[in-house]
Design a protein around this nucleic acid. Sequence first.
RNA 1: GGAGAGGUGGCAGAGCGGUUGAAUGCACUGGUCUUGAAAACCAGCAUAGGUUAGUAGCCUAUCCAGGGUUCGAAUCCCUGCCUCUCCGCCA
Length: 424
Amino acid sequence: MLDPQLLRNDLDAVAEKLLVKGYQLDKKQFLDLEAQRKTLQVQVEDLRSQRNKASRKIGQTKAAGEDIQPLLDAVASLGDELKESEQSLISLQEKLNDLLAGIPNIPHESVPAGNDESDNIELRRWGQPGTFDFEPKDHVDLGAALGMDFEVAAKLTGSRYVVMQGALASMHRALTQFMLDTHSRQNGYTESYVPYIVNADSLLGTGQLPKFEEDLFKLNTEHDNYLIPTAEVPVTNILRDEIISADLLPFKRVAHTPCFRSEAGSYGRDTRGMIRQHQFEKVELVQAVRAEESWQALDELTGHAEGILQALNLPYRVVNLCGGDLGFGAAKTHDLEVWLPGQQAYREISSCTNFESFQARRMQARWRNPETGKPELLHTINGSGLAVGRTLVAVMENYQQQDGSIVVPDVLRTYMGGLEKIKA
RNA sequence: GGAGAGGUGGCAGAGCGGUUGAAUGCACUGGUCUUGAAAACCAGCAUAGGUUAGUAGCCUAUCCAGGGUUCGAAUCCCUGCCUCUCCGCCA
């Protein structure tokens, strides 16, 4: 959610910046509602004030033993009038809130204009795509002989799920362990275990609701519970409705969780293999910092995610998402795209985003500035470090041998009992 | 799942339906005192919204949440959520 003050004071500038995201702000609607709100709110508060004064007077008069009936008669009509005004105010505020909640975050000035991923700007590349003296296979073909089974998964559940058995399953776990260990031991993140099921308030806090419910798995419980689409939701919401002390900053958490996405609206995309699944594992990095440090934190966090790719010696590039490709709450996003020889393409493996105060305002996540003594909104930053399934895919494709075996990257071997090669 | 108890400011903990945004203690901040510190004493110390040029003043809301009764609710009633204790079940 944007700062309502900002909209009131600087509507034109906001509208202009939102165009970079391809969002047309309905200025007239906002101004109309805002004008009504102002009148109504003043009216309601004035009526309340009158009522409070009168009630106090009644109390005093009664205590003095005098007749209160005339005073009661005087306020008789006030109640109805107040109730009526309050109702109008409430319904107006709902409209205003809906409007406000539907406005995306303002993109940072360094975000390029553009409509889709073709307008994203490559910031840098790391590593050289390997050359093969044979035709490299994709992970589906490689995995078929090594224990990766989509057909059994389809029998168990349906499409877009996978079963892995043997060394591949083990490497999947090894990747997770390696990532968690790196971020918690070297990069200063506190490892966190969190629920995989959250309530609607949490999803509202991080912005998945109310707009993107169709992307989520909703549980058939009596409460509004959902499977998490990313650890970002439970981890960031730790701070919801909190005012934390300055010495707890920066707040840095790493969590490994499964993620569940319905992938509605992407029926034709990436149907092959485990690039786009309903259930996948992810190691997520979350930071919450004071406002002036968030841009530095985004770069730092991006670097932490890159460090995993570098340790695995996987070629990648970093992309600055254009306005049209940017998420609803994002001010700026760095996508990490890993090279997949099987597809001869760079594919997204991590998305590192600075939300500035957009999420924090929704969830009232604040810290107390000791210099002023006042609470201030935090800035939140998160990113995958990394998506485990896609990392497995990248390792398989980049480390494949002509005979269909896969060399185990050095950093994973201690996690796999010293295994050097996965073969059929 | 069954039975009971309870949710008040950073913490602890009062609070007959009436000037209670809320006693008191602790913590914290400033001051007096002191060579300095402690103690003692004095003062301050919630959050959000509105109005406004304003971090001034004024107004409104908030004692888990949502409804209700009332001129007036932290206080009464209903619903929900959460916590604790006991029993049952269970990784």
